[in-house]
């Protein structure tokens, strides 16, 4: 994949400028839009690889922009939120956003998110559409056989753990909200299920992560959800 094209949707000029400078310095191509109308137009005409979307736009709610883009494209969307309140991020993720950044964010953080997303894009280009085997570094899931292994050794997972793992793997790179996961795994999203989810994620992580201090596959997003990331190896 050559230089990816990134669409910056941000109404505040200094922040737009900051992101542009950071992207240029790291060899990304970019276009920008200052409002939702322009953003949707740019997205349709240039078909960017990644959209960086500020949720607080003057003309239209950011979540509406996500819904509009999602009606015709699966392009990765990273939302940027100024509020420390989690609810707008959760709403954006449930509407189809892939990841989020909270202002104030550092350039490092921004670049890290972009790298994760690009790795995922590259991976999905290599993958076949109807793959039956998922590979992420030492982790291998055989959907057809219904089993998972780490470094060639089979993992002994409970049915719920396996369902969680496959759900995260199929959405690798995307932040999945608690609500979404419990809906998918239990069919409901009671508070009790969210508590159970934490237990299963913890036990799953113990089986999966060789070094617990630096999670390699599974990221916890406190107050929001979980995500499986691509490992470099």
């Amino acid at each position: 994949m050559n230089k990816p094209l990134i669409l910056i949707v941000e109404d505040d000029p200094p922040i737009r400028n900051l992101i542009s400078v950071a992207l240029e310095a790291h060899d990304y191509r970019h276009i920008s839009a200052a409002n939702a109308g322009n953003a949707i137009m740019e997205a349709t005409s240039h078909n960017p690889d990644i959209v960086l979307l500020d949720l607080g736009l003057p003309d239209l709610d950011g979540v509406k922009v996500i819904q509009k883009i999602r009606s015709w494209s699966n392009m990765p969307i990273i939302v940027i939120s100024a509020r420390s309140d989690d609810s707008d991020k959760i709403e954006a993720l449930d509407a189809g956003a892939d990841d989020y950044l909270t202002k104030p964010f550092s350039v490092d953080e921004l670049l890290a998110r972009l790298r994760v997303t690009i790795r995922r894009l590259n991976q999905s280009q290599m993958d076949n559409a109807d793959q039956t085997v998922f590979v992420n570094g030492p982790l291998r899931i055989d959907y057809a056989a219904g089993c998972a292994s780490l470094n060639g050794e089979e993992l002994h997972l409970t049915p719920i753990e396996y369902r969680l793992l496959t759900l995260l793997a199929r959405n690798c790179g995307k932040v999945l909200t608690h609500n979404y996961i419990t809906q998918q795994v239990w069919g409901t999203s009671w508070e009790n299920n969210v508590a159970s989810l934490r237990v299963f994620m913890a036990t799953l992580r113990k089986k999966l992560e060789p070094v617990p201090d630096s999670p390699a596959f599974l990221q916890t997003h406190v107050g929001i959800g979980y995500r499986m990331v691509r490992t470099d190896s």
Partner: peptide
């Protein structure tokens, strides 16, 4: 909400 302490420290 019910939270895992390790997650919060992490």
């Amino acid at each position: 909400t019910t939270e895992l302490v390790d997650d919060l420290i992490g």
